[in-house]
Write a protein that binds this DNA or RNA. Structure first.
Length: 634
DNA sequence: GCGGATCAC
DNA sequence: TATGGTGATCCGC
């Protein structure tokens, strides 16, 4: 145990203890909880575990980072910052000018949603709990069984459980220690989504373009509703929404006006006076880590930002500085959009399991992961051009390895074959590789359903193209481009995506390094390298494991091509000289990536929530502010 | 483009 | 006995 040496964190691990309390410290229902005592239980229950050691390491790392920040702050304070100050004040003026107080946006959030649904669904939980207490006043005393949903790690818990210090995100066995009588229920998502639908039917009556977040929250722009009901105040409407949701779905929700937070007027003064005493952690985007960093420089509430405004740009990144300024001013997103209009950016799956080790077993797990991801991709109607392997070592250290491909893939076989080299590189990097989690995620997505027109075009391009070539060779040169443009215009697709789909037949010089060859060849050649039969619109193709090109699904041709690629690799290999596996893995990682393009991108925050889809890239409007809403409180 | 890190729910 | 899954963003290379 590292109990003896205490790092700069102090002898009592104060910040670690705080961190171990978990991310949902400020959730409702904990007012009367003795956090000190809860922290003690958690700390003692965790102490000595691998999880604890990992948290300890991360905490020390953060402590060091904070020391750097503090040092920089001291250096800055010795400088003359009048020009910084002036620039910041100009920025504030500009932000003030952009302030939009014309919209009335309501944030609806279900209270302990899963737990509430379960309580509705299980009257037996309430029997014997409701009982008539013959008090003189005749009140009905209601006791509720402390209950949590989820196993291993709690997804949520009811308010009774929260009285014991039980929280979502908490390990189940710790919750049991805090509350021995806690009842655990398994998750049943079908029930929750069904209930969410009932609620959304109500919400749609107030704003048909409401924005559903995860299944237990939503944003509504009630500005239009207010115009139709000039006799009602925003507060009355909000209350009416809550009442109607409860009436129809029997679920209680919190609702507050956003981004001006709750029940405050749409005036600048009201907004600012709300923000000034508000703890930084209450705002979306400030978590445990950022909270500590801000605390270290003396920022506890959003009002504390102002005296430091001249330092922000020098202390943090440009984006972060701007975010802090926006929060201080109480500025935020004022637009609400249906989730359907957001474009998903990735699809992935991951699973935790008992520690696993050994090449065969890990391969088996990778195969299973690929099969899962194939299903998810199919559901999402997506294929991806970048595959990302995520693993968590037995020590809880998380590693990601990703690789861009030359074409989108979606089949389990492709997913497996292209991610296996990544896994094998890790196996040589960490010997032995012992995992507690594995995941696969695809990014750089293209749609396999929405672009039906495009796919049919390419299918026809092959079939009709050949026929036309026989009929009349002259026309062959001309018509594809014309029709290409027509379909592009008709389908409204981005050219980028179209090119991706047409890339199959190009042979570019960007041949992948040979590091994955040995692994891929034993699994990809032959009947195992299945075509992507799940997407009937697509022309049947097999993937060459060496050059990633897509090839006609023909045994003889395919084998011939792979042989060719293999010999090419052998030649390159010979020219390069012998290079052991790890070395080659490194070469791939260190491939020159000069693009310093990450410089001054306009801050256009695309942060989305929960199951949400990514924000559409189409609109680069003036919505430059990081979205924030005050975290729900009651 | 890649990998680590943070965050929300 | 043994701390989750999905998706997004940002930063620094």
């Amino acid at each position: 145990m590292a109990s003896g040496s205490t790092s700069s964190n102090g002898p009592d691990h104060a910040s670690l203890r705080h961190s171990l309390l978990g991310p949902s410290l400020l959730k409702a229902g904990q007012d009367q909880v003795d956090q000190q005592k809860v922290g003690e239980v958690i700390y003692n229950a965790s102490k000595g575990s691998k999880f604890f050691k990992h948290e300890e390491k991360r905490d020390e790392q953060l402590t060091k980072r904070i020391e750097v920040i503090l040092r920089r702050k001291r250096e800055l304070e010795a400088l003359d910052l009048t020009s910084e100050l002036k620039r910041t004040d100009e920025q504030i003026t500009a932000l003030e000018a952009s302030r939009d107080l014309s919209q009335y946006i309501v944030h609806v959030d279900c209270d302990a949603f899963y737990a509430s649904v379960e309580e509705l669904d299980r009257p037996e939980l309430k029997e014997g709990i409701f009982f008539n207490c013959t008090t003189k006043s005749g009140y009905l005393l209601i006791l509720v069984v402390p209950m949590a949903v989820g196993s291993g790690v709690l997804t949520t818990c009811n308010y009774k459980a929260r009285e014991f210090g039980v929280r979502s995100g908490m390990a189940g066995y710790i919750a049991k220690q805090l509350c021995p009588q806690l009842v655990f229920l398994p998750l049943s998502f079908d029930k929750y989504t069904q209930k969410a639908e009932e609620i959304r039917e109500v919400l749609a009556r107030y704003d048909e373009r409401y924005e559903a977040g995860s299944c237990d929250e939503a944003f509504l722009n009630i500005t239009g509703y207010m115009e139709e009901h000039p006799d009602m105040t925003p507060d009355q409407i909000t209350e009416q929404i809550r009442a109607e949701v409860f009436e129809k779905a029997k679920i209680s929700v919190s609702a507050g006006i956003a981004p001006n937070a709750r029940r405050i007027l749409n005036t600048r003064e009201a907004v600012v006076s709300f923000m000034t005493p508000l703890p930084v952690r209450k705002v979306n985007g400030v978590g445990r880590v950022f909270e500590r960093e801000l605390q270290a420089i003396g920022v506890h509430t959003w009002g504390d930002i102002y005296p430091l405004r001249g330092l922000l740009q020098r202390l943090f990144s440009e984006k972060l500085a701007s975010f802090l300024l926006n929060c201080h001013l109480g500025l935020g997103r004022t637009r609400v959009q249906p989730v359907e209009e957001y474009e998903r950016k990735s699809v992935g799956t991951e699973r935790t399991f008992k520690d696993l080790e050994g090449g065969e077993k890990l391969k088996e797990k990778l195969r299973a992961t690929a099969v899962e991801l194939e299903k998810d991709l199919k559901r999402a109607g997506s294929a991806g051009r970048t595959v990302n392997l995520k693993v968590k070592l037995h020590s809880y250290e998380v590693l990601n390895r990703q690789r861009a491909l030359t074409r989108p893939i979606h089949s389990a076989d492709d997913l497996y074959n292209y991610s296996l080299p990544l896994l094998q590189a890790l196996e040589t990097e960490f010997k032995p590789l012992r995992l507690r989690l594995m995941g696969l995620r695809m990014t750089s997505l293209v749609s396999t359903t929405k672009s039906t027109k495009m796919q049919e075009f390419f299918k026809n391009a092959v079939v009709t193209g050949k026929r036309k070539r026989e009929d009349n060779e002259g026309e062959w040169e001309v018509w594809p481009e014309e029709e290409f443009q027509q379909i592009k215009a008709a389908s409204g697709e981005k050219e980028e995506d179209i090119l991706l789909l047409s890339q199959h037949d190009q042979l570019d010089e960007e041949v992948v390094e040979g590091e994955e060859r040995g692994a891929a060849t034993e699994n990809t050649i032959g009947p195992n390298a299945k075509p992507s039969e799940e997407v009937p619109q697509q022309v049947e193709k097999w993937s060459c494991p060496i050059c990633l090109r897509s090839l006609p699904a023909d045994d003889a041709l395919f084998n011939e091509h792979v042989d060719f690629c293999l010999s090419r690799e052998t030649i390159k290999e010979a020219a390069r000289g012998p290079s052991p596996e790890p070395e080659r893995a490194k070469q791939v990682q260190q491939r020159p990536q000069s693009q310093g393009s990450n410089k001054v991108g306009r801050p256009s925050d695309k942060r989305r929530k929960g199951s949400g889809k990514g924000k559409s890239t189409g609109n680069e409007e003036s919505n430059t502010m990081r979205q924030y809403f005050v975290k729900a409180n009651d």
